[in-house]
Design a binder for these strands. Structure first.
Ligand SMILES: [Mn+2]
Ligand SMILES: [Mn+2]
Ligand SMILES: [Mn+2]
Ligand SMILES: [Mn+2]
Lengths: 217, 217
DNA sequence: CTACAAATTTAGACTTACCTAAAAAAATAT
DNA sequence: ATATTTTTTTAGGTAAGTCTAAATTTGTAG
């Protein structure tokens, strides 16, 4: 049985590695987990011994398929809980991430399957992120950050960053929800800011925000 | 912010003290928490420093009102979650206690208030135990264990012990649910076993079982 | 190629929540 | 009242997960 800390490390490694594609460095993990590099080295050794990751000193870690399946189970729980909180209990989409960070560690297969069934097997969470199924299969979205689009391009919002409550409140205000059409009207080379249209409303968007909105290719 | 261990200690102290009436001894607590007396002494000192309990060496602990309000908040969450699992997700009443032991430690006032609202402010959990309100007020049930009844007495089941899954499956089978009428037909002095009627069906009940069914006075 | 900087690991400590074994206090029995 | 048993506390350790500071390795720039 994995500890809360171990589960959080595996989840972060999974995310930072782009679903296991690339190696993750010690400092990246320390940053993501709000801890220190020395602590990461310790934990990474432990997870490596248990074969959830492979670790080569000074070269970072790669997640194994065993580790991936743990990570995906945690991500599944996180996203199902977020969906439940919004759809069933009426939470706002900026209120759910923190609570889901706790709920994702509840150990009960029955519970999460019942929630999934209760919700009618949702495919994506309130922020547009895909929900892995019980077997750990996850739909990979074809997506890019809004900041990569050029002036004139039209696209649809696929997902948004879920962990910044203030960002989410702002996105709500401008109607930047998954599913909405978005057109880039102009782009300022100097600071990377954009002018965009969402449902015929025009908005100025900072580069920072444009990094956290994911759109169709 | 209290740790999981601290919350569990306070909950156990509350239960073992009959809602704070009497002092709780070190060994009782060790037994209830599945730990050793030495560990209890350590924790009890810590909780005492933090003023959740008062502790006098060799004489056991008493819960303070500060401690009581923590305990009641945890009990509230436990019972609301159990109710949610049964009513909303279709868990059986013997499947919920273990999961609720985890869910009761989720930190989010909003979450538990939303669950309470969603359920329509239930007064008792699936095992008949009263649910404290958000202010920590709890209805004290007038109840006694079935084993204290004498032959001929009629009563109504108020609550049953919630933590033994096999007991609950058995009680389900004989229809011993909170709200049901129960008559003691005879009592065997030798081993304390009883013959009872529930909805005109007759059952032999061991002393052990009769200690875990609570009935009206 | 060498010097300096950046990233990472190692060493040594700390906190929480446990444990066992020994000592001390309280309860009970003679 | 004294001896024995039971309960509780103290002493000293352990494992998980964290930290700071120092040492080591790797990367970069002249
Ligand atoms: Mn989230
Ligand atoms: Mn999300
Ligand atoms: Mn319970
Ligand atoms: Mn219950």
């Amino acid at each position: 049985m994995l500890s809360l800390a171990e589960e959080n490390y595996l989840k972060s490694i999974y995310h930072l590695s782009d679903a296991g594609e690339k190696a993750v460095l010690t400092n990246e993990l320390a940053e993501a987990l709000n801890t220190k590099a020395a602590s990461v080295t310790d934990m990474v050794k432990k997870l490596s011994t248990k074969e959830f990751i492979s670790y080569e000193k000074y070269y970072g870690v790669k997640i194994t398929s065993k580790g991936k399946s743990v990570a995906l189970a945690v991500i599944r729980k996180h996203r199902l809980w977020e969906t439940f909180l919004v759809q069933t209990l009426g939470f706002k989409w900026d209120e759910v991430h923190e609570v889901a960070e706790q709920l994702e560690h509840i150990k009960s297969t029955l519970l999460i399957e019942k929630i999934d069934e209760f919700l009618g097997y949702p495919q994506v969470d309130p922020h547009g992120d895909p929900i892995p199924n019980a077997q750990g299969k996850i739909k990979k979205l074809e997506k890019t950050a809004l900041k990569n689009l050029t002036a004139g391009s039209e696209s649809t919002i696929v997902a948004v960053k879920d962990s910044d409550s203030n960002l989410l409140k702002y996105l709500e205000k401008i109607g930047a929800k998954p599913g909405k059409k978005l057109t880039v009207i102009s782009k300022e080379e100097y600071d990377g800011s954009l002018q965009v249209a969402i449902e015929s409303q025009h908005y100025f968007i900072s580069k920072e925000v444009s990094e956290n909105i994911l759109v169709t290719l």
